[in-house]
Amino acid sequence: MKKPASRYILFIVFILLGMVTAWQLKSTLNARKATASSALNANILREQIAELRLEIDQLRTAIDENIALQNDIIKEYIALQNDDQLSREWEIIKLHTGLVGVEGAGITITLDDAPVREPGMPPSWFIIHDYDIRTILNELKTAGAQAIAINGERVVPMSEQICAGPTIIINDNRYPVPYIIEAIGEPDGLYEAMSTSNKVAELKEFNILVDIKKSDKIRISKFSGADKLDRYISGLEVVEK
């Protein structure tokens, strides 16, 4: 009687082992399938990102060509008017609105969130906010900065600096830390203004990194939103004096 009982036990054990093996095999196949699917999705996403980047580059090129064409038309019109004063006024307008790139001496300010944060204190105290950026920009303008850029984005009167989580949106473009502020102007005056700035001192108190350097040559590109200037003046009417 023992042998049949042993056979039944072995039979049941083999069935259980078969079920476990089948389950493990199925799990392995599903895992591999999921991995393959994830890899496929990742490849598709990479292709889509590459296509979007190409499309963005093409749009930027088209915008630059359109702006260049507009400038050529304006130059031709001014030349036909044979008016030196009008020509000078147009050059001044381009400088003030950031329609042309500029170059000169100045300072560079690098800002980064605090690497070490005090326990028990709000995390927001140790990161850079849009109002911190705006205060520094205003202090630079007061100190005589003639042109300013943040992470390569030209700052003009229409520019906005908006917090978006751990990033800041400048001219509709999003940037993470570090924030690199470039200002063209008299280097010694700008450096002195930033070195004695109450805002800079406040940031340093919360371990926020602030590095200020003078530079003999800073190049700032033209305003990236030049193609959207119409939206800033829509609804306005010229009032004759």
Rank of each mutant, 00 (worst) to 15 (best):
K3C: 07
K3Y: 15
P4R: 04
P4F: 05
A5K: 09
A5D: 05
R7C: 05
I12K: 14
I12S: 09
I12P: 11
V13F: 14
V13Y: 12
V13C: 09
I15V: 12
L17N: 13
G18M: 08
V20N: 08
V20G: 05
T21S: 11
W23T: 10
W23C: 10
L25S: 13
S27D: 07
A31L: 06
R32D: 06
A34M: 11
A34V: 04
T35D: 12
S38N: 13
A39M: 12
L40S: 13
N43M: 11
R46K: 13
E47W: 06
E47P: 02
Q48R: 14
A50C: 08
E51M: 12
R53P: 01
Q58N: 10
R60I: 03
R60M: 05
A62G: 12
D64V: 09
D64H: 15
E65V: 09
N66W: 09
N66V: 02
A68F: 02
I73S: 11
K75F: 07
K75D: 09
A79S: 15
L80I: 13
L80C: 07
L80P: 02
Q81T: 10
Q81P: 00
D84I: 06
L86T: 09
S87T: 06
W90P: 04
K94Y: 07
T97H: 11
L99G: 07
G101F: 08
G101Q: 08
V102S: 13
V102C: 03
V102E: 03
V102T: 13
I107A: 00
T108E: 12
I109C: 08
T110D: 01
D112N: 13
P115I: 03
R117W: 08
P119N: 05
M121S: 14
P123T: 06
P123A: 12
S124Y: 14
W125G: 03
H129N: 05
H129M: 01
I133D: 01
L137P: 01
L137E: 03
N138L: 02
N138Y: 10
L140S: 04
A143C: 10
A143L: 04
A143T: 04
G144K: 08
G152K: 06
E153A: 04
E153C: 02
R154G: 01
V155H: 00
V156A: 09
P157C: 02
P157H: 06
M158P: 03
M158H: 11
M158R: 12
S159W: 05
S159A: 05
Q161M: 14
I162K: 14
C163Y: 03
C163H: 02
A164T: 10
G165K: 13
G165L: 09
T167C: 10
I169H: 03
R174K: 12
R174E: 10
Y175Q: 13
V177K: 03
V177Q: 07
V177M: 05
P178L: 02
I181P: 01
E182L: 01
E186V: 02
L190I: 00
A193W: 05
T196K: 14
N198T: 04
A201Y: 11
L203Q: 05
F206W: 12
N207F: 06
L209I: 11
L209E: 04
D211G: 08
S215P: 02
D216E: 13
I218D: 00
I218H: 00
R219I: 00
R219L: 01
S221H: 06
S221W: 03
K222T: 04
S224P: 02
G225Q: 14
A226G: 15
D227C: 00
R231W: 07
Y232F: 15
G235W: 08
L236G: 10
E237V: 10
V238P: 02
